[in-house]
Amino acid sequence: MSIEKQTIENLATLARLAIDDTRVEEMSQRLGSVLELVDQLKAADTSGLSGLDHPLNETQRLREDTVNKPNMREAFQAIAPDTEGDLYLVPKVID
């Protein structure tokens, strides 16, 4: 089983990965064999079963609404690739 080139390209767009033509073929083969593996799921009888999102049957703990995060901009921006004027910079955003 292999996946169509177009599908790989769509997935790569959604996942924002540059996948050039030389890699598409290999990706398609490998993803195809993984999908063959996961297709075994289809045979399982799961009628009436709810999905298990979390291994333990716990519920969300809630936090009190109290500020306790100091300003650490300097430390955070020291490891950022491109900042200026206290902002993170990216190529022009076009809506």
Binding site: A12, L17, A18, V90, P91, K92, I94
Partner: peptide, 18 residues
């Protein structure tokens, strides 16, 4: 954008991500 690897000279936002 905020940390880690960033490609050289991205020509636009999509290029930066991809």
């Amino acid at each position: 954008v905020r940390y880690g690897h960033r490609c050289e000279d991205p020509k636009d936002l999509e290029d930066l991500y991809r």
